[in-house]
């Protein structure tokens, strides 16, 4: 290709990493829920959209973007817990298909509710003033807000790691994932632990939606397309693996970006081709345990 310089290639890869950051967030939430509860949450994209709309509401009510960053995960987290309590928990132990179908249907209900209350057309969402514009990062100009998204992703992942590895609740969650029966015998209310995990996953999904809003605006269907991408990331990384979600998310971002440089028409196909190859060579994904889906 004419005019292909090292700077361009570097900037292209960096753009892909920034794109991957949103995938990582979404896939992390999905993987968290699957790894602990063996529930494939197909409503994850709807929570992503709900997060963006909740953020819009915060701004419309006079709040600012920073307040929304706090409020949105709380709202979508609580909503996720309510969904777990009201719907999902009744299907535990009934194989992988039932909760998948339930959340699939739920995603339609949630998106339709958004359409009813907020309209089918989508809403504008400005980049916060402090993060507007582009900065020179040495290899070219790059949108400041996308740097912020990368930083936020790193922060959230670090906090999640701290929570799971360094707190008492985190210890219970990890233990519960490994052997729920022993935990119940020890007197731990595993139902509450699952609810918390589900809420944590949807909180991260909502936050990802809010972070994506200034990049693309807000619309009812915004979660649908990205859910497919996030699902690819989760499968490639290995269902239930957080490390897999991170590495696969960044990889998918870079692949999408490089495809856009060399063969933009193939953008939609490239990541599914990646998934197909990974499934052929290593069906459980990069870091997944074999047999989890069966």
């Amino acid at each position: 290709m004419a005019g292909l310089s090292l700077d361009l290639l570097a900037l292209q890869i960096f753009t892909g990493l920034a794109l991957g950051a949103v995938y990582v967030l979404l896939a992390t939430g999905m993987s968290l829920i699957f790894g602990m509860l063996t529930v494939v949450n197909f409503a994850h994209g709807a929570f992503f959209a709900l997060g963006a709309y909740a953020g819009f509401l915060v701004l419309a009510l006079g709040g600012n973007f920073w307040l929304a960053l706090l409020a949105v995960p709380i709202v979508t987290g609580l909503l996720g817990m309510a969904v777990e309590w009201g719907l999902v928990r009744h299907l535990y132990g009934r194989g992988i298909d039932d909760p998948l179908l339930l959340t699939f249907g739920l995603s339609y209900v949630l998106v339709e509710l958004i359409r009813i209350f907020a309209g089918t057309q989508g809403l504008p969402f400005d980049t916060p003033d402090a993060l507007a514009g582009a900065v020179d990062i040495g290899i070219g100009y790059f949108p400041l807000y996308r740097l912020f998204v990368i930083a936020m992703t790193v922060t959230i992942l670090f906090l999640l790691w701290l929570f799971l590895e360094r707190t008492r609740i985190g210890l219970i969650i990890r233990a519960g994932a490994r052997d729920p029966e022993i935990m119940r015998v020890l007197g731990v209310d595993t139902g509450r632990v699952w609810r918390l995990v589900f809420g944590l996953g949807t909180a991260i999904a909502g936050l990802a939606g809010l972070l994506a809003a200034p990049l693309q605006g807000v619309s009812p269907e915004m979660g649908n397309a990205i859910l497919a991408d996030a699902f690819v990331v989760t499968v490639v990384g290995g269902m239930g693996s957080l490390a897999g979600a991170i590495i696969a998310g960044l990889l998918v971002g870079v692949i999408v970006s490089l495809t856009a440089l060399f063969a933009p028409e193939a953008g939609d196909v490239a990541i599914f081709a990646l998934m197909a190859v990974v499934l052929l060579i290593r069906p459980q994904g990069f870091f997944g345990r074999a047999g989890l889906m069966s």
Binding site: Q12, T15, L19, P143, R146, A225, V256, E265
Partner: peptide, 15 residues
């Protein structure tokens, strides 16, 4: 050429 319904064009900007 980009697929209809594309959500992210950031990957085109460097080029």
């Amino acid at each position: 050429k980009m697929p209809i319904g594309t959500r992210d064009f950031s990957t085109l900007m460097p080029r």
